[in-house]
Structure formats: structure tokens, C-alpha cells
């Protein structure tokens, strides 16, 4: 073939598996071919197509930070055919990976600003990549606040990291679980993310808000941020339309004139407002 096969995945080895929550795992992956590993680079916000050969491909964002070189990580919830097959794998097994695809968070443009990260449920992975990236460049930013919510305490992912971030003096972190999802030992907040956010009364002054979560959470969080005075172009999020190719061909992620895999997955609220509500 004169052009390379853009659907051909790299083979990666699972170096480490972390159980994050019931049905949620993180894989640390290494390229089988070290040369491929050296050539590989990505930026916060990008995603890939991960495959179990014989079962198929599925889309996850890269959950590790580009500042931590030599490996990538993904965190996924067991949901269907491919994620169930992934779930069965063990350390040392191989999987396929194509990527990185999509656009990125414009971190450099945020220098000198406050950052407000708002994440819900399993949507912490795209955020985790970004958070680590920003924390590894901590001197670029002013205040860093993280609001993270899940349905129940058990559903909170990255518990180790949450502790690590909470221990840092230069990060403010608020965790919350939906009403009824708390345990007797739970020390965080109880309430839905948008409500907790309103209670925090964040200042929109010189602040960028980054929101990731299920569509319904995003919708109400936008409303809360709007009320708090955030401008639509100071609010970032990622869209998670169903994808197959990841490269603007298969048509699946097309929303209005936008292809989420190619033009996204990172969008500002200002951009999303212009799109038909097909995400």
C-alpha cells in the first residue's frame, strides 16, 4: 500500500492493572515495539481506539498525562462487548491501540488563570490526564479547584489520586456523592454536582471551567456556571458521541457540521451552543 493503513493498531502490552471501582479498571500500557513508543506523543484531551483482537474496538480517552512519558493509561467501565473482553485481560496480555486522535485542551492559553475542574462519575479519566498535566505545570496557573462527584462512594475512581491531590496545599478538592450514595465514613459532600457547585459559589473572574461527565450532569453544570457568570468560551467540555473510526470517515460522530472525533472531543460551551443538540 502506498498510503499507510490508518486502521492498523499498534500492539500494546498491559503493564499494570488497577481496579478503580466496581466494574472500572485502569490499564497502564506499553508499546510492544519500543521504537513506536519513542515516536508516540499526545496531548491532554485526546483519545484512542483500543481493541481486543477478535472482539472489536472501543473509544477511550488517554487518561495519563503527556508529561509522564513512556506509557499511556486508560480507565474504562465494563459496559459491552469490547469492554467486557478488556475486563477479562491480565497483566502481560496484549491489546491494540490506534491514536492519538482528536483535538486537545488549549492548556498553554490558560497560563495565569484559575482552573476549576468539574467531573462526574467515570468521566474523570479525560480530566485526570488534564489535571496531572496542569499540576505538572503548576506554576503556570493560579488557583486550582477540583470538584468531583459520583453516584456512590464506591463509584469514585482514582481514589489514590484523590488523596494525593487533597494532600497538596496548592489544590482545593471537593468530592461529593449523590444523595443516598454516602457511607457512614464519608467525609465529602452529599449532593448532585451542579448543586454542590452552586453552593461553592465559584468566582468566574479569570477562571477557566472544565466539565466532564454524563450529558445530564453537563447540562445542569452549564446552567450553574452560567449563573456564576462564566462566559461560554471559558467553559470547556468533551463530547462523547459514539465513534468507530476516530478519523472523520465513518460518519458516526457527526453532529451538525462537526465531527466530534476530528474537531473534538474538546469543545467550549460557546461552540456547543451552536451545535444541534445531537450529542
Amino acid at each position: 500500500m502506498s498510503d499507510a493503513n490508518v486502521y492498523k493498531p499498534s500492539v500494546m502490552r498491559i503493564e499494570k492493572i488497577t481496579e478503580e471501582a466496581p466494574g472500572v479498571k485502569t490499564f497502564r500500557l506499553l508499546f510492544n515495539d519500543p521504537e513506536e513508543g519513542r515516536r508516540f506523543s499526545f496531548k491532554a484531551g485526546q483519545f484512542g481506539e483500543y481493541s481486543v483482537f477478535g472482539e472489536g474496538e472501543c473509544t477511550f480517552c488517554i487518561a495519563s498525562s503527556p508529561t509522564r512519558e513512556g506509557y499511556i493509561e486508560c480507565t474504562f467501565r465494563q459496559a459491552g462487548r469490547v469492554t467486557s473482553a478488556l475486563f477479562e485481560l491480565e497483566e502481560g496480555d496484549t491489546i491494540g491501540f490506534r491514536g492519538p486522535y482528536g483535538n486537545t485542551f488549549p492548556i498553554e492559553e490558560w497560563k495565569g488563570k484559575n482552573l476549576l475542574f468539574i467531573a462526574g462519575g467515570i468521566a474523570l479519566p479525560p480530566m485526570r490526564c488534564l489535571i496531572w498535566n496542569c499540576l505538572d505545570r503548576r506554576d503556570w496557573f493560579r488557583d486550582v479547584t477540583i470538584l468531583y462527584g459520583a453516584r456512590t462512594v464506591a463509584d469514585l475512581v482514582y481514589k489514590r489520586e484523590l488523596e494525593e491531590w487533597a494532600a497538596r496545599p496548592d489544590v482545593k478538592i471537593v468530592t461529593t456523592v449523590d444523595p443516598g450514595g454516602e457511607t457512614p465514613e464519608w467525609k465529602g459532600k452529599v449532593g448532585f454536582v451542579p448543586t454542590v457547585l452552586e453552593g461553592m459559589a465559584p468566582s468566574s473572574e479569570n477562571t477557566i471551567a472544565i466539565v466532564c461527565g454524563p450529558p445530564i450532569m453537563i447540562k445542569f453544570t452549564f446552567i450553574a456556571l452560567d449563573k456564576a457568570g462564566f462566559k461560554p468560551d471559558a467553559i470547556f467540555t468533551t463530547l462523547e458521541n459514539r465513534m468507530k473510526c476516530g478519523i472523520g470517515k465513518c460518519g458516526r460522530c457527526n453532529v451538525g457540521p462537526v465531527f466530534v472525533c476530528k474537531d473534538g472531543p474538546v469543545f467550549t460551551y460557546a461552540q456547543i451552543k451552536d451545535l444541534p443538540a445531537e450529542y
Binding site: S51, V52, G54, E55, E57, C245
Partner: peptide
């Protein structure tokens, strides 16, 4: 031009 991608075979040998 819309398409789907499907794997067939086993986890040791197959086609996409």
C-alpha cells in the same frame, strides 16, 4: 460512506 468496524474470528486469529 458511513461504515461500521467489526471483528471476526477468535482472540487468537481473525480479521477486522
Amino acid at each position: 460512506a458511513c461504515f461500521d468496524i467489526q471483528d471476526e474470528g477468535t482472540t487468537s486469529r481473525g480479521v477486522r
